[in-house]
Design a protein around this nucleic acid. Structure first.
Length: 644
RNA sequence: GCCGGAGUAGCUCAGUGGUAGAGCAAUUCACUCGUAAUGAAUAGGCCAGGGGUUCGACUCCCCUCUCCGGCUCCA
């Protein structure tokens, strides 16, 4: 097998497979080697900007490889920028990376893009692709680069910040050119614009330069690109499927909850079906908390503003809190954004001995946070929500085992809900924080150790911790691969200090306990939103608000349907009888649309024989003449909760 | 909060300055039906709210609210 190298000047050089990139570079001359950004091996791509793989062989990649996809998408971003600069003279461009599933590019333009603009840009991109322009790479000095991008301040800002310590003089900055377009870029790229198989612009939005809301707001154009037209189409279908799972849409369709305008943004009401689902989740939460040794407490939704002063929330969290409610001359009251201070007051209600520790207090605590108007998003980001919150007070020696227990608890809880893939973030000390540095270091270290030994994959999120301590945030992957943050385990040495918490040690000395804040579901609202999307509304039977729908064939079977309902309910099942005047087909259809796990049909034959017809969600076939007793045992088995 | 888009019947949507329409859902009647849509009739709207322009506004302009896509932020 040989490798054909294509160069921007059209030269094609043949090499045997297995030679190193360096050897190729030498054989064709150093100047060309740098210019030759990509080569082709049949339909595979190779990039000379990093030509050698681990075994010292040519690193050949295809578009289907993660690297290849990245190169494809990044090349698309260039073509996008080229199209925009062509079509909108006077506009300038900022950055345009490849991202998951696609790419974007940020521009500063006179007018925000419209849908028509997007179509015009896409058309121009198609023209550039049809022209099959070669991508060429070159290196220039910082000064040369600043001159080239004289009209593009964002590029000049990037150039000024490039780290030039590791490159040779005069080659500080690399550029990629195709046709008249030039962009600042490390590469690599496809050999030419004609190598883009399938690209589609998706949407536009505002985005801040450098992600900083104090700086310019740019116009971002998002697109997606794939190795083939078919994969692009598949992606678009997947997007549509994801839309069908949208918990806001399913919430209305399955009559679970709503967000009445009259209540205000981000405030939900739960309808009976959603209420039942929620009751099942709450019952489960209480059961498993009890199983893990937690005790239940209740705290009010309001507290004097002094309390929030002591806790530090007014200093560090004020922008997310609803302002103080002031009545006459009385001290103001604040609606709680967190449950911790309430639990702390319970701990503080009397002196504590080391023999009592750990003390684990839990509450399904409703909290209210003022979220900026643009961030509210269904159940996933509400202004009022309920945390399955707990606060564990323990000694330093108990921290390790307590943290392991909490992690185990969280994973068990998430697995029971149907999730199987987990990733953790270890969020470390933020800029605005309280407490001694040595204790921050200690806390971060112990969290890292616990995570390390758990075997759960994790990454460090620098500066993402709470103001009072570092935390482990647990993310789950849902059925279609999306990542959601749910649980959080937070280590806290600060609030015990601020509230002067103590326990008496074995040596009869006053010691300060540690606190572990933990929400297993995170918030019930977000958790249920994610559950809805994960299961696409077809919940595991133990969760389903309606587990069985009974369909009488004709009105004369309603009485028998009622009897079957009664015996099923005696076995703990949640059952509805469809007494509408619809046809059997209609009623079946309604039950399936509502994603009820089981449908029972009863007609003349069943009344006589004491049987039912049984049909399960997701199965097209039905089984007739099932004795009621057998139906009960099958259904109750299916509806069984995960073992505690 | 910022940039864009949108708000018409319970839902999905038509309606480009001359006083509002469809399908589904609902209600009623007929049909009483064996596994994904029986037929007919009826009812249903302060066209998100407020202000303005106009002889006249769902339609044009301004403000507010709410939602959607992102940015920023987050459970």
């Amino acid at each position: 097998m040989s490798i054909d190298l294509e160069y921007p000047d059209g030269k094609v050089v043949e090499h045997p497979n297995g030679v190193s990139g360096l050897e190729i570079a030498e054989s064709i001359g150093p100047g060309l080697a740098r210019a030759a950004v990509a080569v082709r091996v049949d339909d595979e791509l190779l990039d000379l900007s990093r030509p050698i793989n681990r075994s010292g062989k040519l690193a050949v990649i295809t578009l289907a490889d993660p690297d290849g996809l990245h190169i494809l998408r990044h090349s698309c971003a260039h073509v996008l920028a080229q199209a925009v600069l062509d079509l909108y003279p006077g506009s300038t461009f900022a950055i345009g990376p490849a991202i998951e599933d696609g790419f974007y590019y940020d521009f500063k333009v006179k007018e925000p893009f419209t849908q028509e603009d997007l179509e015009a840009i896409q058309d121009r991109m198609e023209e550039i692709m049809a022209a099959d322009q070669l991508f060429t790479r070159e290196s220039v000095s910082t000064d040369e680069a600043l001159e080239i991008f004289i009209d593009h301040p964002f590029k000049r800002e990037i150039i000024a910040n490039v780290d030039t310590s590791e490159v040779s003089e005069g080659e500080d900055v690399t550029l990629y050119r195709n046709d008249g377009f030039v962009d600042l870029c490390r590469g690599p790229h496809l050999p030419s614009t004609g190598r883009i198989p399938a690209v589609k612009l998706l949407r536009t939005s505002g985005a801040y330069w450098r992600g900083d809301q104090e700086r310019d707001q740019l116009q971002r154009v998002y697109g997606t690109a794939w190795p083939s037209k078919k994969e692009l189409d598949d992606f678009l279908v997947r997007q549509e499927e994801a839309e069908k799972r949208d918990h806001r849409k399913l919430g209305a369709e399955l009559d679970l909850f709503s967000f009445p305008d009259e209540l205000g943004s981000g405030l939900a009401v739960w309808h009976p079906k959603g209420g039942m689902l929620r009751k099942v989740i709450e019952d489960r939460s209480r059961d498993i908390h009890e199983r893990y040794g937690f005790e239940f407490v209740y705290t009010p939704h309001l507290a004097k503003s002094d309390l929030w002063e002591t806790s530090g929330h007014l200093g560090y969290y004020a922008e997310n809190m609803y302002p103080s409610l002031d009545v006459d001359d009385e001290e103001g009251y604040i609606v709680k954004p967190m449950n911790c201070p309430g639990h702390i007051l319970i701990y503080k209600s009397r002196p504590r001995s080391y023999r009592e520790l750990p003390i684990r207090l839990s509450e399904l605590g409703a909290v209210y946070r003022y979220e900026k108007s643009g961030v509210v998003h269904g159940l996933l980001r509400a202004r009022g929500f309920t945390q399955d919150d707990s606060h564990t007070f323990c000694t330093e020696e108990q921290l390790d085992s307590e943290l392991r227990m909490h992690l185990d608890f969280v994973i068990t809880w998430l697995k029971d809900a149907g999730f199987s893939e987990f990733e953790a973030d270890l969020s470390t000390q933020p800029e605005k924080s309280v407490g001694e540095q040595s204790r921050w270091d200690f806390s971060e270290k112990i969290l890292a150790e616990v995570l390390e030994s758990s075997g759960i994959p994790y990454q460090v999120a620098e500066g993402e911790g709470a103001f009072y301590g570092p935390k482990i945030d647990m993310h789950v992957k849902d059925a279609i691969g999306r990542r959601w943050q749910l649980s959080t385990i937070q280590l806290d040495f600060t609030l015990p200090e601020r509230f002067e918490l103590e326990y008496t040690s074995a040596a009869n000395a006053a010691e300060q306990p540690y606190m572990i804040h933990c929400a297993k579901a995170g918030s019930l609202e977000r958790f249920m939103g994610v559950l809805i999307e994960h299961h696409a509304g077809a919940f595991p039977m133990w969760m389903a608000p309606v587990q069985v729908t009974i369909v009488p064939v004709a009105d004369r079977h309603i009485e028998y349907a009622g009897k079957v309902k009664a015996v099923l309910e005696d076995s703990g099942l949640r059952v509805e009888v469809d007494e509408s005047g619809d046809t059997v087909g209609d009623k079946i259809r309604t039950a399936i649309t509502q994603k009820h796990p089981a449908v029972i049909v009863v007609g003349d034959n069943d009344v006589d024989a004491g049987t039912v017809g049984l049909r399960l969600y997701g199965e097209d076939k039905d089984t007739r003449g099932v004795p009621v007793g057998e139906a009960i045992s099958r259904l109750t088995e299916m509806a069984e909760k995960p073992a505690l």
